[in-house]
Amino acid sequence: MTTALLDFLTALALAPLLPGVIARVKALFAGRQGPPLLQAYFDLCKLLRKSGVYSTATTWIFRAGPIVACASVVAALALTPAAGRTALISFPADFVLLAYLLACGRFFTVLAALDTGSSFEGMGASREVHYAALGEPALLLGLLALARQTGTMSLPSLLGRASPLAPEAALVGAALFIVLLCENARIPFDDPNTHLELTMIHEAMVLDHGGVDLALIHYGSWLKLWLWSALLAGVLMPVALKTIVTPVPLVGVTGVLAVALGIGVVESCIARLRLLRVPHLLATALALAAVAFILGVR
């Protein structure tokens, strides 16, 4: 229990490191210095000391959105194990609850966006739910495939026993990587640094938040990235590494940072997809997960 608590707290503390790592990798590819690794922490500290500006057209939903979104990710993180270890809370089929906690956060973010009545937020929200509706089945089917392969239904044992050498795990890993990029607003789906409001998906929904709300939104998104990276690391990490026991989740953290590195490389090398094609790529992820499932069922 204490190790799980320690893992949970480590995730909460280290999540803001991920955007720094990704930015540094991208800077390396570009040939520039890049922002400091701890930039996200500095941003959070500053945001917490700023006030917010609220439009007279918004209601309590606008203020509730960031709080619920962040809280739901924190709750989902409690279900996520670091590679090879236990999670704070686990029970059979807990991954379904995980998926729906994330969906709950997304739902409130979308509601808050629609509450503003602005067309950009509306467009961002419609794109977000459209793609999420395609990505969620891939996540669930992929984890089900792993459940079938390992014979267990709770996340810690699912991820603990999955081996990347098995074809199911490799396929599920590929599918999860694609959905990770989509859910976390990364290239090729979305450009987190874009200044083009008509192309934004996730960023468009949060254009109107400022101050503490924005801090919660940013922190929530980094926690979500950590969560997804931990899931992916759990699937792709060799079983031998997962069995190493350490008081702190060293292996898990390394796995997450390796995924962040991979995200940085992908973002530096390919262009964004035209939004029309995003469903095709998500369908590919679903297909990969389906094949993994079928392989397990035969």
Partner: peptide, 12 residues
């Protein structure tokens, strides 16, 4: 960016 300065899309 290396000095922590960034241009953002929204005034908020």
């Amino acid at each position: 960016g290396r000095f922590g300065v960034q241009f953002v899309a929204s005034p908020r």
